[in-house]
Amino acid sequence: MNNRLRVLRAERNWSQAELADALGVSRQTINAIETGKYDPSLPLAFKLAQLFATSIESIFMPDEDPA
């Protein structure tokens, strides 16, 4: 799954640690989501969407279908 988390965070001038703190997760978790190594749970995705005042679909996009 692709995401725009790094862009959204940069627009607000937040560090990974600040975002992690606001969400109650570790900085490593934010980094893993941004680099696409970890897809968050639905509750965490909703928290992210709420924090950035947008929809989940505007943060997370499915991978391109290779077929």
């Binding site: 570790s26 978790t29 893993a32 970890y38 968050p40």
Partner: peptide, 13 residues
């Protein structure tokens, strides 16, 4: 057990 309960979802994974 107490420590695991304090972890976030990625750390638990």
């Amino acid at each position: 057990l107490r420590f695991v309960a304090s972890l976030d979802e990625l750390e638990r994974r």
